[in-house]
Write a protein that binds this DNA or RNA. Structure first.
Lengths: 224, 224
DNA sequence: ACCTGAACACCGTTCAAGT
DNA sequence: ACCTGAACACCGTTCAAGT
């Protein structure tokens, strides 16, 4: 692929985003990106620093696509909706989303969402539990999505995984085998399809409900 | 370093575990492992297959160190204790723990913990919400730990991160700046220390409580 | 200011050959 | 069965040199 010179940082980041999404982070390299852009590897270093910095920019390109819900709704619905939008963005760009879970991008602008969450928590009246409420929500929601998107076995190995699971010994795994039909290919660590084919929508809604119910129970009694 | 020949798969996995923990996954390579063992790279391939399979074995070596609590206690305490043990293991071997979040190891034996969790959930009476309760707990707890252990900026960049955060514009980030003392270096995405220096113990306890409270609220009314 | 061309010090993996 | 030695096809990054 030929690209007009001079190239820009913006084009580099956009192309890196696309390549990571198309071929996966493991297949992505500075050299393949340079080839894709029709340019020498060293050129990239002039524009974006090194690989790690470039990945930080890609990560930021991803996070800025999550839009805050407006504040008109009640806090529960606002929190739930934000969590859903975060997850939706992750499912639209799963490979970059997994990258973003590493928090490489130290960009202040990516703190706009955290700031809004803090504001909402304060208004809810979490009081001196602010940090913990924040960490619990952030860790649980982002963490769930990371786990959900964790790369499955390579496509050709999927049926092997399925066979392994179907062959589980009822003596050793009495509970999983008894509830096999409910769990198989649905529960974390027991899936052989990837997240795109089998999104855990209902489990995510369940988590959000559990979190917000549990959080409400922690609030001082002045609010329900 | 010299190693007696013939070498064993067990020695390879043990050494790989140690190297990943000492120097980080990024610094780990098949070649450096071979050098450490005083052996040619090709030898490793004969014993463990390829890099990806070896990492799977290291992951399993990590997960099998988590011991199940005995079943005598009530389900809430059992769940909380298991979550704590999982996290404690992660903090003892953070670099391998992050590797394990990728679920590379497709080893049936690593399903012993999931099986026990399923059993407990069933006894709690989650009914047809079994998969979702399982995924919510698993995703939230494991996810929180992954986020907590996410690599911070390189040590030499820590003070830069701190400066950036202290320089946040109160116009743009009114909530974070107002609660800066509570949040700084404590909240996810706002830390400059790593997890070893600043473990999020209280936030984790908060999360576990929120999850179990919220889960209890989902149960049919036959149980409190 | 921006890019080339070449080089350096690495990788993971394979394979024939040795014992 | 287990290991060597060499090779192949890659990496990220740096740097002098070009324009």
């Amino acid at each position: 692929m030929r690209a007009e010179v001079p190239i820009t940082r913006d084009i580099i980041v956009t192309t890196a985003f696309r390549l990571i999404e198309e071929r996966g982070l493991e297949q992505f390299s500075m050299r393949s990106l340079a080839t894709e852009l029709g340019v020498f590897p060293a050129t990239l270093y002039w524009h974006v620093g090194d690989r790690s910095q470039l990945l930080g920019m890609v990560e930021f390109r991803w996070i800025e696509q999550v839009e805050l819900p407006d504040h008109l709704t009640d806090w529960r619905e606002w929190m739930a909706e934000l969590a859903r939008r975060y997850r939706r963005n992750a499912h639209e760009h799963p490979n970059v989303a997994r990258l973003a879970s590493l928090e490489r991008a130290r960009n202040n602008e990516s703190l706009l969402i955290p700031d809004a969450i803090v504001g909402t928590l304060v208004r809810m009246g979490v009081g001196d539990q602010l940090v913990h409420a924040y960490n619990a929500l952030m860790g649980a929601v982002r963490g769930f999505v990371v786990m959900e998107l964790a790369p499955r076995a390579e496509p050709d190995a999927a049926s092997d995984v399925e066979e392994d699971l179907r062959a589980l010994d009822p003596e050793q795994f009495p509970n999983i085998t008894e509830h096999f039909d409910e769990m198989a290919d649905q529960a974390l660590s027991m899936r052989w399809s990837n997240a795109a084919e089998h999104p855990l929508d209902d489990s995510f809604e369940f988590l959000v409900k559990v979190l917000l119910d549990g959080l409400a129970a922690q609030l001082p009694r002045t609010r329900k």
